[in-house]
Amino acid sequence: MKPAPFTYCRPDNVEQVLDLLRQHGGDSRILAGGQTLMAMLNMRLVEPKILVDISMMEALRFIRVADNYLEIGAAVIQADLLAWTDLEQYAPLMAKALPWVGHAQTRNKGTVCGSIAHSDPSSEMPLCLALLGGEIVLRSKTNRRMVKAADFQIGTLTTARQEDELIEAIRIPVPADVSKFAFQEVAIRHGDFALVAVAASHSPDGIRLGVGGVADRPEVRHWEHLPEDEIDTALNDLAHELGGYDDIHASAGYRRELVRTIGKRVILEVMA
């Protein structure tokens, strides 16, 4: 279980990163926290020719609030975001969800943007970003663009990122003061991948529910108005729409059932 050979690059600045990505495209991988990528390298599921290490790049290690957006740079470690004193104020949902991401030991190295980049269908960070209507800031040598979270993750481990693009940061709209958030997850053991994860928000424009682990990417639904007696029907429809899948840990039917049950729990929690 050792990685295949690669060239290791540690650029000094973002421009150099973009040069490398332009030059090597799909043969390169960005190494940020490496908590998923390194495991995949060790298993030789991934064999890039060039590994571009941005983990120590200070220019990408920013947590800042600007224009009513919270911006989290590509090198920001999950543990640092969790420890950020203003997190509860600017991204209360992230504060609730981050403790569910892996274990403390992996959060000490894993990055927030790395979770987004990897886009595991049951991962917590992409679910939060999608629910919050966040954006991914993609930069290439020639272009800088923002992609809505809903458009970013296309399917399992598959995103809208082009091969020459770097996820520079993610942006999350700062919620209205009155907004409420809830997050719940059912996993087999503490720290496991979610069988199903749900996040909900209640803000002046209505109720949102995000579901991870059921479809091949997090799915978010919005109801301007959701009377309590319609929740069951709405969630049942959603469960059928998302379908779910069978694996050795849980059946599709179980996943759908959790959409109905824990989905309801988080909706009621934010409505209360």
Binding site: Y8, G34, Q35, M38, D53, S55, M56, Q105, N108, K109
Partner: peptide
């Protein structure tokens, strides 16, 4: 698990050159 710069992390998920 070792500590790097005071934080516990997995040494199997890091490269020596890092």
């Amino acid at each position: 698990t070792i500590q790097i710069d005071g934080r516990p992390v997995r040494s199997c998920l890091m490269l020596a050159v890092q």
